[in-house]
Amino acid sequence: MSIQHFRVALIPFFAAFCLPVFAHPETLVKVKDAEDQLGARVGYIELDLNSGKILESFRPEERFPMMSTFKVLLCGAVLSRVDAGQEQLGRRIHYSQNDLVEYSPVTEKHLTDGMTVRELCSAAITMSDNTAANLLLTTIGGPKELTAFLHNMGDHVTRLDRWEPELNEAIPNDERDTTMPAAMATTLRKLLTGELLTLASRQQLIDWMEADKVAGPLLRSALPAGWFIADKSGAGERGSRGIIAALGPDGKPSRIVVIYTTGSQATMDERNRQIAEIGASLIKHW
């Protein structure tokens, strides 16, 4: 067993022997301040990774656009098919120029040779490549099948209805392509620590998230040296922004954090800054 596999296998073990965790309302004060600064709703939840206990939450059962955070769930569904012998990570998928959609920095470079399922998941999570996500959605049967996968996990809230990039439209009061912070946090925890996926697939999923290259201005910008984070960000229309993450000190994750916002007129930089400040408060009061 590799060191990384050992780390993920012992996530519940280490967490069980940690000192009790206590909620700190100071972080919620910052979440509410972010709402004021952005002029928009902000949803927040913080779960203990081992027990699933909610440590703090704000608007945990209000719907927010998922945006690209759905790509972690998508690759979880792909990995479940791999575990069941219905898919192979090494299978190569070929596609054409007509398949390319807006923001496809990886797939646009491989029109000639195609990409493997493993490479597509890596591109979808680490670079948020939209064509990679659409190609992977095709392998599982489309958005409705991802929703069905989530329902089978016990998540009857999260739903995907459309493809990239239309799913980022974020129309107010439109339930399409949305989740709730509580539902997303619980589902992410199941994917990373539950028995739904094999140990190898859980490790692969967290490795992809740990290698995320496009979430630097968010929670990662607030992390002290030595902290662990595996995350996936999302951005959408109407001032929408979000991030889902597993993080913790001492090089291992111990909490799940989900943050979503929508309806702001603020710039992307300002949305990023507010999420980073929430992260800084979380870490300060850990």
Rank of each mutant, 00 (worst) to 15 (best):
T261S: 10
A40N: 08
V257D: 00
L38R: 06
V258Y: 01
Q86C: 10
I275Y: 05
A133L: 00
E119G: 10
P65K: 04
L74G: 02
R241A: 04
G194R: 09
D231T: 04
D48V: 05
M67Q: 08
D36A: 15
H5M: 15
E62C: 07
V29L: 12
H156R: 13
D212C: 04
S221A: 13
P172M: 12
S281H: 13
A211G: 13
E169S: 14
G234R: 00
A183N: 09
Q86D: 13
I229T: 03
G90Y: 12
S104N: 05
T178K: 02
I93P: 02
L136A: 06
T261W: 04
E61M: 14
A276V: 10
I206R: 12
F17L: 09
L282H: 02
L55V: 11
M1F: 02
D177Q: 01
I171A: 15
V101E: 09
P25Q: 13
V101P: 02
L10R: 05
V42R: 00
L74V: 08
T69H: 07
I259T: 03
A246I: 13
G52M: 06
R159I: 06
K190Y: 12
H156W: 11
A235E: 03
A246R: 02
A246Q: 05
I93R: 03
P253D: 07
E277A: 11
N98S: 14
S68D: 00
M67D: 11
D33I: 14
T262K: 09
L79V: 06
P20Y: 03
E119N: 08
L247S: 02
K190T: 14
R220H: 04
E270G: 08
R92T: 11
N152G: 14
L135S: 04
V257F: 04
P172L: 12
A280N: 13
G85T: 07
V214G: 06
T198P: 07
G226R: 10
M1H: 01
I11S: 07
E145Q: 12
E87M: 12
T193L: 12
A182Y: 14
S2C: 08
S221R: 13
V82I: 11
E87D: 10
M268K: 06
L74R: 00
T27W: 02
A183V: 13
F6V: 11
W286P: 02
S233E: 01
P12Y: 13
L188Y: 08
E145G: 15
I11G: 08
D250C: 12
L135N: 03
R159E: 06
I283H: 05
G90I: 11
T131Y: 05
Q265T: 14
D129Q: 00
Y95H: 05
M268E: 06
R7A: 10
S201H: 15
D155G: 01
E195H: 14
A84M: 10
I278K: 00
D161M: 05
T267G: 13
V8H: 14
P181Y: 00
K53E: 12
Y103H: 07
S51I: 04
D161L: 03
I206F: 13
T27G: 03
E108S: 11
A34D: 02
A230Q: 02
I171E: 15
R41Q: 10
V257P: 00
L38Q: 06
I93A: 04
E108C: 07
L73E: 03
S240K: 01
G85H: 12
E270K: 13
S128H: 00
A182T: 12
A222M: 12
D212G: 07
H110C: 08
L197D: 03
N168S: 08
L160G: 04
R91G: 05
L137G: 04
T193K: 15
V8W: 08
E164K: 01
Q203D: 11
K284S: 14
E102T: 12
Q97S: 14
R118H: 15
E175F: 12
P105K: 06
G279A: 11
A246N: 05
L199I: 15
G194P: 11
M66G: 06
K32A: 14
T147E: 09
Y95F: 14
D99P: 05
R59H: 09
T27S: 07
I140Q: 06
N130R: 00
Q204D: 08
H156T: 12
S51Y: 08
G234I: 00
L192R: 01
E164H: 01
P253A: 13
N168R: 03
E210N: 10
G236S: 07
P172W: 09
E169T: 13
L111M: 13
L89W: 06
I259W: 03
N98M: 11
M209T: 02
R92H: 10
D231E: 04
G234Y: 02
E166Y: 15
V31N: 02
Y103S: 05
A276I: 07
I45G: 03
P60V: 12
V21D: 05
T198S: 13
A230W: 03
T147S: 11
L28C: 08
P249D: 07
Q203R: 14
R159D: 06
P217N: 11
T186V: 14
F17P: 05
T179R: 00
N50S: 13
D177G: 03
C75D: 02
G242F: 00
L223C: 13
S128R: 00
T187S: 12
L136I: 09
R59P: 00
S68C: 01
E87R: 02
F6A: 07
L49R: 03
S104H: 06
I283G: 04
K284W: 10
R118W: 15
G43Y: 00
I278P: 00
L167V: 13
P105I: 07
T261N: 03
D48W: 03
M1G: 00
E61C: 08
D113T: 14
P143Y: 03
K71E: 00
G242A: 10
